[in-house]
Design a binder for these strands. Structure first.
Length: 773
DNA sequence: AGCACGCCGACT
DNA sequence: GTCGGCGTGCTC
């Protein structure tokens, strides 16, 4: 397929009348279509076509190649319906990247291509109708008999009015002039106004002008780092850097000036940011520095908007793109620099629909193909990225000093094992500090990674907790509407009067979440204005951004929240951060839970003391001896890494190996289990180590006598055994490197099993999975 | 993944 | 008697 691709990227010279097309479904086969004889040009590889597929449906597909001879009965071949893109939508290098991606992450090429082009199944080219003055405008506005309403509309286009030149949509103009759209249509008929099509109207937002900044003076760390990145950029070869900078060391400024150098070389730059961090402020900082040159791509954008932004990037009209995970596929021409900010963040890994890719890793491969420089930035680099430094695949850039006036905040541990009953949620020390901070006229943040009021409702008689009927988790009690909710499948029920098991009326709430923390704060400090920011609050009150901007303006004194407070808050008046229960994320059943906890604690602590006051961080914990917690207290990344790396090595887990997770789900747990055992059997057979096979279950972790190639972990029920009424089982395979992984997945017996799974069982393959064990 | 064809329950 | 449930197998 690749050689035909090389030959026929251009068009017009095709001798063979058939194209191969893939669709957005898991089938790996391409489908052959005839190019209608009437077509003057042929569609090129990486462009979209409309084709009749499966029944009477016309489906959008991507052209992936051409062929002259048919392998199936010619009478089954159908004609293409239409050509959607005149030119290739996916340029050759990006196409190559996606072929690699489909192979690496075990998805179909169609899924990969459609993931890179996330604009639905219809052609989304949209041109906006705008109103502009028509030929009769001058004469009409000069007419003294002109009606009041019409005059209002026409005067919107007088010279000197904002915006210049005046551009309105029909509804926009109607709103501006306080008339109905009918008035405007009347004026269009008269020729006083006319319609024009506009592709795009970039406007400088308020936030943007707020952040319009000039280059600040760099710290020594920043200067050195920038110099090294600059040298790499000028060499125009692929080079990978890991920028390890403490919170507040000014990584973003390095990125900004790196982009400046990139643009000066006539190249373009791509910045990836994690999902939650993409508050308008993040993008505004880039837009402010490079007005009119930045496209922002994220999930909240409407499809037409996203498509427009994508097109402008593709045509080189906007040389900078800032975006979340899927922005890694934006076809910027002459890509010179890729930045992956907060590279350790798990939201870069796509979990649900295939392809289950990791945008950071895709970025590294893309940088290689494009001969671009890539900078991964983090205050708490992932072990994988740090390992790449040790293996010389990547170069370390270290910024140990804060760029702000104050050093890293003092972190104080509050050992909750020795608390009074009254201090169940907030220790006396925390109450003191919150009050003191409030009296100083400064702000505080309380962090707890758990929504709701109480984590469970438990019967006092039979001591059973109420569980979700669809998932294997307890229901969380929400005080707002006295409801019980499942945080996984969205199940909702009213608080019951009796225990469903023994009918007892004695139900008690146990465990606490952000709702209860807020209650405690309000009870302790009634004089302070405290509010909550979590998924529920953003859905009830208003957007995440609204709450944050009120916090910034000082309308809120104390903010209680989940992960949402850990990012995107860079506010000078925050003195105190309280981590309500540091070990919550440690209890998650996953081998990365320590790493995630450490990163989260470091991240949250970094919110304090960014202005003119030294910061103070209180960490309340029942497990203060855990290395993730004590390392975070001391801002000791390297110490943490040393311990964690050793543990992972002993267990044969990443970064020393790579994992592939095979998951089975079914309505019946027996079916899922039986299937996963069959799968494990196939995997076991494909392990060619003279019968040496190491099963790794729970505690029984044995070091292998000789280095084995692959090793199975499981099969076992998934950490979330039942989700949305489906039972889940998994088996993990640890392989040493990418070559072994390829060998494993190319086993034809395995492939056959995966493509045709048993009745009513779904199998998913997750390469480099994030939430396992 | 969709979607059509195909064989068994509660409705006009 | 039919409308429609979703089980299963195919899609150039």
């Amino acid at each position: 397929m690749m050689d035909t691709f090389e030959t026929f990227t251009g068009r017009g010279n095709l001798k063979t009348p058939y194209v191969q097309v893939v669709f957005n479904h898991p089938l790996r086969d391409s489908f052959t279509y005839r190019i209608p004889a009437t077509w003057e040009t042929i569609p090129c590889v990486g462009s979209r076509v409309l084709a009749p597929f499966s029944g009477k449906a016309k489906q959008l597909g991507f052209v992936v190649g051409y062929t002259g001879h048919l392998t199936i009965d010619p009478s089954r071949i159908k004609d293409l319906e239409a050509m959607i893109d005149e030119e290739e939508l996916i340029p050759p290098l990006l196409y190559k990247l996606l072929e690699w991606l489909a192979d690496y992450y075990f998805s179909s090429l169609g899924e990969a291509l459609f993931a890179a082009f996330p604009f639905g199944t219809r052609n989304t080219v949209r041109q906006e109708q705008v109103v502009v003055p028509g030929p009769e405008w001058i004469q009409m506005i000069g007419d003294p008999k002109l009606s009041e309403k019409r005059r209002k509309v026409l005067s919107c286009f007088e010279p000197g009015k904002e915006p210049t030149p005046p551009v309105f949509t029909i509804t926009g103009l109607a709103h501006q002039a306080q008339v109905t759209p009918a008035v405007i249509r009347g004026l269009i008929e008269k020729g006083a106004l006319q319609l024009a099509t506009r592709i795009h109207a970039p406007r400088l937002s308020e936030a943007e002008s707020l952040y319009q900044t000039s280059r600040p003076v760099l710290t020594e760390d920043q200067q050195l780092t920038l110099e090294l990145v600059g040298i790499a950029l000028r060499q125009e070869t692929n080079q990978q850097f890991l920028l390890h900078g403490v919170t507040g060391s000014g990584k973003t400024e390095v990125f900004l000036q790196g982009i400046e150098e990139t643009l000066a070389l006539g190249k373009t730059a791509l910045v990836l940011v994690p999902e939650i961090a993409l508050t308008p402020q993040t993008a505004a900082r880039y837009r402010g520095r490079f007005p009119g040159m930045v496209e922002v791509l994220h999930s909240a954008l409407s499809q037409p908007r996203r498509f427009e932004a994508w097109q402008r990037a593709r045509k080189g009209e906007s040389p900078i793109v800032v975006g979340t995970r899927s922005a890694i596929f934006v076809p910027l021409p002459r890509l010179g620099l890729i930045v992956v900010d907060e590279e350790h963040d798990a939201s870069y890994k796509q979990t649900d629909p295939a392809p289950r890719y990791h945008a950071r890793d895709v970025a590294c491969y893309r940088a290689m193909l494009e001969k671009a420089v890539i900078v991964l930035g983090s205050a708490t680099p992932s072990l994988e990225s740090y390992e790449n430094v040790l293996r010389k695949k990547s170069r370390l850039l270290y910024m140990p000093n804060r760029a702000t006036a104050y050093p890293l905040p003092a972190v104080e541990l509050v050992d909750m094992r020795h608390r009074q009953p009254s201090e169940r949620i907030l220790s006396m020390r925390a109450r003191e500090v919150l009050e003191e901070t409030h009296q100083m006229g400064l702000q505080s943040i309380l962090f707890l990674n758990r929504r709701g009021h109480s984590t469970q409702l438990e019967c006092r008689e039979c001591s059973k907790a109420l569980e979700c009927p669809n998932c294997s988790v307890t229901l969380v009690w929400h005080s707002r509407d006295l409801s019980l909710r499942c945080h996984h499948c969205g199940y909702l029920q009213a608080e019951p009067e009796n225990c469903p098991h023994c009918q007892s009326v004695w139900l008690r709430a146990r465990g606490y979440g952000t709702e209860q923390v807020l209650e405690v704060v309000q009870a302790c400090l009634p004089q302070a204005r405290a509010e909550r920011i979590d998924l529920d609050a953003t859905q009830e009150i208003g957007s995440h951004d609204q709450i944050l901007s009120r916090f910034r303006k000082g309308e809120i004194d104390i903010l209680v929240g989940t992960q949402m407070v850990s990012k995107g808050i860079d506010m000078p008046r925050v003195r105190t951060v309280v981590v309500v229960q540091a070990e919550t994320s440690l209890n998650v059943a996953d081998f990365r839970s320590a790493e995630r906890s450490f990163a989260l604690l470091t991240q949250v602590a970094g919110r304090a003391g960014r202005g003119d006051h030294p910061g103070l961080v209180l960490v309340q914990s029942f497990a203060p001896g855990h290395y993730a917690i004590f390392s975070a207290l001391r801002h000791d990344y390297l110490g943490f890494r040393r311990i964690e790396t050793k543990i992972r090595r002993n267990l044969g887990l990443p970064p020393h190996t790579r994992l592939v997770n095979f998951r089975c789900e079914s309505e019946e747990t027996e079916k899922a289990e039986a299937t996963i055992r069959q799968l494990a059997e196939i995997l076991q057979q494909s392990i060619r180590v003279n019968g040496h096979f190491h099963s790794l279950c729970g505690e029984r972790l044995s070091a292998s006598p000789h280095p084995t190639q692959h090793r199975l972990i499981g099969p076992a029920p998934c950490p979330l055994e039942k989700l949305a009424a489906r039972w889940r089982w998994q088996v993990l395979v640890a392989v040493r490197d990418g070559r072994e992984r390829t060998q494993l997945l190319q086993n034809p017996q395995l492939y056959a099993f995966l493509v045709k799974p048993p009745y009513k069982v779904k199998i998913t393959v997750d390469v480099d999975p994030m939430n396992v064990l």
